[in-house]
Amino acid sequence: MLLVLLKRLGQTVFVLFGISVMVFLVFLATPGTDPTSRIAGKNASPQTIERVRHEYGFDRPLPVQYATMMKKLFITQDLASYANRGELVVPELAKAAPITLSLAAGAAVIWVSVSICMGTVAAAFRNTWIDRTLMMIGLVGLSIPVFWLGQVANLITQARFHDTWLFSWVPGPGYIPFSESPLGWFRALVIPWCTLAVLFIGLYARILRADLVSVMDEDFMRTARAKGLSPLRVLLVHGLRTSMISFISMFGMDFAQLIGGGALLTEVVFGLGGVGRLTYQAMGALDLPLIMASVMYSAVFVVLANALVDVIYLVLDPRVRDGR
């Protein structure tokens, strides 16, 4: 078990290194253009450009540039945004993180519970109209662009039906910190949560159903029935528990991606000032340091979450624990 963990750790470190190189190459060594003017932002003065060139070492070889960049990102954390009057990037991201975390966590609660219900019910009634209807709903959910769904949700809750009893409780777009008003926080986020969850509900319900249906043909499900267990217990305790393993590994990936900025579109549409919206605003100003930092941090999140998922795997699946 220790060996498995060590091997996993080595892999994680390697992937992290690879990602940092890739991000560096994408942002600072794309052929054709001078990275100096990109970092300096639009309409930078010659002095600024000169300073940036010196600060990032663009007049020196690539490996030195890479080292400088990593030092600025992770060690001294003094990567500054030139487009935004020298604001330090890393603290800015840290300030936005709780909003993104609130959004992703709430959506996750919704999508996990709804998709487990949908997938299980569909599998229990497989090949009936119930199954087909639920799976079609899931497919529709998969097919809706999330930013557009957000607009539709805004249209309904902020304009068309805002004055009816149904949606009069929805506050205007924007974020209300939990510490300020827990209820306000909840109200402000309910609609974004649901919007973000729709895609994942479709995806997870369909995958869970497929897993459950294939598990149902397994011998151990027959054993469980032959023991005289109720159909519900067989499905949930034996079938669902076994299918949950792949479900959880998927969840880890997706959740990490959302925290790392994958919820960008949702944040933009609902005006939530999270990491994603910060990145979006940086795009308008061509504020490369900030975008680079957010991509880098999100990738780190994903890799760490992946490693965490593998550890959870060890707990959940006794077969993996023994290295089989």
Binding site: F220, R222, A224, A226, K227, G228, T242, R319
Partner: peptide
Amino acid sequence: SQRALRHVRGREIAMIFQDPMTAFTPVY
């Protein structure tokens, strides 16, 4: 009915299957 059969299965008639590897749920 399946409900009535459930009380027969396991308690009055029990069954052993061919492949003991796949006949146990792997996660318990």
